[in-house]
Structures are given as structure tokens and as C-alpha cells.
């Protein structure tokens, strides 16, 4: 191998090593931290959510709405619109959840009725224990 070619190869090798040695820590540094699974439970008295009413809570840092659907009972849905992340608002009169940003409309079961949201609102497991509603 000629000296000039050897120098070029070494330059490429050392250059790539230096670049990778910098890029890897940089990518790790700016990467979002992995979410830690935390045990969290929310307890709400049933009388805070009357029939046809709703209550907004925060569960695992996600805004959640608990709705008492007439004839169907309680449901807990994420308020984060599956379109672009705005928070849906409960319209009790129309029995709909409406996103104020891009006019997405969801049923009280979280199903998309109209607008651009690609999927239903995520549902959280909920159970009734005595006079309380439990999430988590």
C-alpha cells in the first residue's frame, strides 16, 4: 500500500471513529427518556359524575374524562385527540366529544364520528366499587 493511500484510509477510519464517538452520545443525550410504568389509582365519588355529566381528571400525566353515559354507564377516555393532540371537550347537550383544533368529533364511546382523527380515543379501564369510581 502506498503511503498516500494509507494516510487516506487512516484519515477515513479516524474521521469515522471520531464522528461516531460524538454522534452516539449526542443521540443518546437528546433521545426522550423511556417512560417508567408507574402504579397510579384515581378514586372519584360517583355523585361527582351524575348521569349525562362528566369529570376531567389527570391519570398518568394524561388528561382523562370520565363520562356517565345515559343508559350505558361510566366510561373513562383519554382527552388527547388522536389527530394532533389537542384536548377534546365534552358537549353534554349533543352527547359528543369535540376537538377545538381541527373539528374532530367523537361519540361518548370514543369512536370517531367525523373529522380527521384516525382512531378512537384511548379507553382506560374503570370499575365501580361501592360509591366510588376507580381508574387504574
Amino acid at each position: 500500500m502506498k503511503r498516500r493511500r494509507f494516510l487516506k484510509s487512516m484519515l477515513a477510519l479516524l474521521g469515522s471513529t471520531t464522528l461516531l464517538s460524538f454522534l452516539y452520545p449526542l443521540l443518546r443525550f437528546i433521545a426522550p427518556p423511556t417512560g417508567e410504568a408507574r402504579v397510579e389509582r384515581i378514586v372519584i365519588p360517583k355523585d361527582e359524575v351524575p348521569t349525562g355529566g362528566a369529570k376531567e381528571v389527570v391519570y398518568r400525566e394524561t388528561p382523562v374524562i370520565i363520562i356517565n353515559r345515559p343508559g350505558k354507564g361510566y366510561i373513562a377516555l383519554s382527552r388527547v385527540c388522536t389527530h394532533l393532540g389537542c384536548l377534546v371537550e365534552y358537549d353534554g347537550r349533543k352527547g359528543r366529544l369535540i376537538c377545538p383544533c381541527h373539528a374532530g368529533v367523537f361519540s361518548l364511546d370514543g369512536v370517531v364520528l367525523s373529522g380527521p382523527p384516525p382512531k378512537p380515543l384511548p379507553r382506560f379501564s374503570l370499575r365501580i366499587e361501592g360509591e366510588n369510581i376507580l381508574i387504574g
Partner: peptide, 23 residues
């Protein structure tokens, strides 16, 4: 307020066309 999206929030005028397209 991370728990309240204001009604009819609009982007800057230069993003209104892409915003309306998305709608």
C-alpha cells in the same frame, strides 16, 4: 394550561393555509 385547549385556536397567519388543509 396543559389541561385546557382554547376554543378555535389558530396558528400564525403563515400557517393558516396548511392548518385549514389539515381540517
Amino acid at each position: 394550561d396543559p389541561y385546557k385547549t382554547p376554543a378555535h385556536i389558530k396558528p400564525g397567519w403563515y400557517f393558516l393555509a396548511p392548518y385549514q388543509m389539515l381540517k
